[in-house]
Simulated assay, not measured.
Amino acid sequence: MEDGEQPLGQYFVHRPVLDELCLDELAQKGTWSTKPSFGECVKDSLRCSVPRAKEVLLSWVPVLGWLPKYSIRENAVGDLISGCSVGIMHLPQGMAYALLASLRPVFGLYTSLYPVLVYFIFGTSKHISIGTFAVVSIMIGSVTERLAPDSNFIVNATNGSAHVNIDERDAYRVEIACALTVLAGLFQILLGVVKFGFVVTYLSEPLVRGYTTASACHVLNSQLKYLFGVKPSRFSGPLSLIYTVVEICSLLPQTVVPELVVSLVSLTILIVVKEINDCYRQKLLLPIPIELIVIIIATIITHFCGLSAKYNIDVVGEIPSGLQAPRAPDVTLFSEVVGDAFAVAIVGYAISISLGKTFALKYGYKVDSNQTLARIC
């Protein structure tokens, strides 16, 4: 090594030692703050421009963003088949879940129609279909039966016998259900406006899948009484699912055998055809609409064979045609259902967002949680 050379791998840094004042002066530290004041934030939020107005409009009405880009050639056939399948499913499901809410089946059909149209305009999930759901129907049914029990509508006939005024009871239960759902919708809109959807961040994938599985268990449990033709009591609380199963098991000796036979035959046909649709979905032009076929065949057989009169099989009954004119709910009932409405709002949102997140994770897109919360009402 020659004189004056530094050893390889060794470095020497020479810089002056700075105290705090010198460092502030060198860094040109100021006393200003980069964070905007509250007034500036308010002015920025109220500032209007064409790009900002377009952004706000598309965030509140997502259909305006994706519909102009919709590819009819690529998606129309698949979406048409999917829409027909979901629509066919909504028919029996809506009527069945209306019975869980202690309402007439036609109101389940109404619930299967309007929410789908609204979510088409304001929703962000590509796969969920808003409508009736077993858990929410059970919650609403517990409220309608609590506030409008059969004992409140007993009338005495001229011969001394007593019976329940079904028409008056059902009409009042509809008023209760309308007040409950409108109030639940207002809660959901309010929570969506205040950005309550941030809680979705803490919903992990195992939690969402577990919630979906638990919901499926509630659906199965809610249909057991119709499968066996028994009438268990309605339970509420943490162990209501277990209590219901236990009571249904205790009522098995009272099983209406014809109803059980009809249920088992229908289930067998549905499962077999579903498997056929899955195995040959590449060869079939469209899936076999077995749900609609089963409903039509069962309706014809029940009507012309007189199964309801001969074997005491429960039937849905008359379904009125047309749509009723909308009207405002009875606001005097809000105070009686406010607690239940908040619970329904949270559960309904949890069901929708859990299903939406499940499909979004599977197909690789995002769901706006706040938009979903404000629009599933």
Rank of each mutant, 00 (worst) to 15 (best):
G141Y: 02
I295V: 15
A148V: 03
V315P: 04
V17K: 14
H127S: 08
K54E: 06
A343S: 08
I72H: 13
R375K: 12
F120P: 03
L58Y: 08
V294R: 04
H303C: 05
N165V: 07
I296G: 10
S335A: 10
A298T: 09
G160F: 01
W60R: 13
D170G: 09
V257M: 09
I346T: 09
Y202C: 14
S308T: 14
L103G: 01
K43P: 03
S82H: 03
S308H: 05
V315Y: 00
T181S: 15
S240D: 14
I269Q: 02
L8N: 12
R52H: 09
Y211Q: 11
I293G: 05
W32P: 11
L284R: 07
N152W: 01
G9D: 04
E336S: 14
G185S: 10
V257A: 02
Y243K: 14
L292T: 12
H218Q: 13
D19K: 03
E175F: 08
V200P: 00
E175C: 08
G322D: 12
T332G: 13
V245D: 05
L109R: 00
N152L: 15
N312W: 10
A360M: 05
L251Y: 09
S233K: 13
I353S: 00
F228T: 02
L57W: 03
I128L: 01
V344M: 02
V164S: 01
R375T: 15
I81L: 02
L220I: 13
G197M: 01
Q282D: 15
L191S: 00
L117T: 04
I154C: 08
E2Y: 12
S250Y: 10
S266W: 03
A98E: 00
V316D: 00
F38V: 12
K29W: 04
E20P: 03
S233M: 14
A309I: 06
Q93D: 04
L203W: 07
L57N: 02
N152E: 12
H218S: 09
I319Q: 06
P289I: 02
D150K: 05
A157N: 15
H163W: 13
S125N: 00
L147F: 07
T372Q: 09
L46I: 09
T244V: 05
V261P: 05
K274V: 08
V331R: 12
L241H: 11
G9Q: 04
G123N: 01
P51A: 02
P7N: 10
K362P: 08
Q10T: 11
L373M: 10
S215T: 13
F196K: 05
R209D: 10
R234V: 15
T299G: 13
